[in-house]
Each structure stands twice: as C-alpha cells, then as structure tokens.
Nucleic acid binder design. Structure first.
Lengths: 111, 111
DNA sequence: ATCAGTTACCTCAACCTTCGATGTAATGTA
DNA sequence: TACATTACATCGAAGGTTGAGGTAACTGAT
C-alpha cells in the first residue's frame, strides 16, 4: 500500500516474464504471484501489462501455451519457454547487464 | 558500429540527463558527449530523444536554461539543475536502485 | 442463501517516451 | 569547394505501461 511503487520500464516486463518461465511452466496469474514473491513484494505486475505481454511473447514464438488444470483444480492457460524464448532471455539479460553497468558508471563518475 | 546497442528504457534518459547536470551546467550536445564518454561508449543519447527530454524537464521546472558561449566560442543553450531537479534526481536514483535490486533478486532466485 | 474475496482470463483508450529521419545553420578544415 | 563537426530543433511511427473495466468460477463466512 504505502511503499511507493516504481514503474517497470518499457521492455523489462518481457524479460522478467521469460525469467519466471525459465523456472518452469506457469499461468499468467501464477507468473504475477511468482514475480511478487521472488522480488519480495517489490514487483507488482499489472494485469493490463502482463496479459498483453504474454500474448505478444507467444506471437513472437518465445512462448507456447496450453490449457491445463491449475493447482486449484481449475482450467488455466499454462505458458512455457520455447527454445527461441530461452535464447531471447539470454540476450535480454545481457542487455540488461550492459545497461545497468553503464548506469553504474554514470553514477559513480564524479564522486 | 558492431557493438549491439541496447535501448534506453522509458524514463531512464531523464534520470541520466539529471545526473549529468548534477556535475555542472552543460548544453544538449555536451550532455550527449558526457554520457557517451562517462559510460565508456555504452550509452549513445539519440538527439531525437535528448532534446525533447530537455524541453520537458525544463517545462517541469527541473532544469533551467540560458544561452551562453560554449567552449568553442559559439552560442549554446546551457542547462542546469534547479532545486526541484536535484530532488527529482534523488527520487529517480532511489527508484532505479529498488528496481535493479528487485531484478537481481528475480535473477538469483532459483540458481 | 448471500456476500466478499480470490483465482483466472481478457480488452481498451490514454499516455508517454524512444527512435529514426529530417531540417537548419555556423564553424573548421582539407 | 566540400565534408565533418558543433548545435539546435521538430515530426510521425512504433511500442509498451497504466488504470479501468469486464467476465466467470470457486471458496468461505455469515
């Protein structure tokens, strides 16, 4: 409630979704929960961002989906990484690392 | 040329510009140069992103500008941080740190 | 039986930023 | 003369996030 939430920058959500799915298949709602828990409440995936993200990732061939029964016994759409998705995750991690390294340099210059 | 450039995520450029100006006043072109040098060629600010960013930051009252003679003896628009800009920079740094910390958690979970 | 809360999916318009292209103009240099 | 650099600017296209709204089924409590 009170903790000021930072915005998730453009493109970052895709990477986080791919990362979550690298731990195994999950449905949309579950991905949001994983993200929330694993980040210790820091990341709160908006449903209005998450579902479109899943759709475009699937359309790009980075994910595939099928309907299965969820842990609660209800039908849910489970997503899993494709080979291309794994590769893309590696690429985006690498980009992220370069970006954060650059920002670190920028902040540390001129102490 | 060959080094694949990562995109600067939405909102990040503003923070980087503020940070550059926290080192002292500079004109747009100079900010781009500082960014490029300080980041060791990793960040390449697009002029089509940079000038609009400067304009909106000034409009928000985070920067102020005046025309002065540049190092090369030509007229240039020098920007400098306002008090509000300094505060905003602190806020955005804090957000950035929370974001990167969260992403680090997400990546490290499940090694 | 009803009400609230949770699980689980989805869509849409508004907003904002980045990108790449394009344009102007002055200076320096080969 | 011609090209690269400095230095400003604008514009449309593209793309993703947000917040709001909507559907539906299941659970537990009153």
């Amino acid at each position: 409630m009170s903790s000021s939430r930072f915005p998730i920058p453009q493109g970052t959500l895709d990477m986080l979704v791919l990362q979550m799915l690298s731990l195994g298949p999950a449905h949309g709602y579950g991905i949001a929960q994983r993200l929330h828990q694993v980040s210790r409440e820091a990341v709160q995936a908006n449903q209005g961002s998450l579902y479109p993200a899943l759709h475009r990732l699937e359309q790009k061939g980075l994910l595939k989906s099928d309907w299965r029964e969820s842990e609660t016994g209800r039908e849910a759409k489970f997503y899993s990484l494709t080979r291309a998705g794994e590769k893309q995750l590696a690429v985006e991690k690498e980009s992220w690392n370069r970006l954060t390294a650059a920002v670190r340099l920028i902040f540390n210059e001129g102490r």
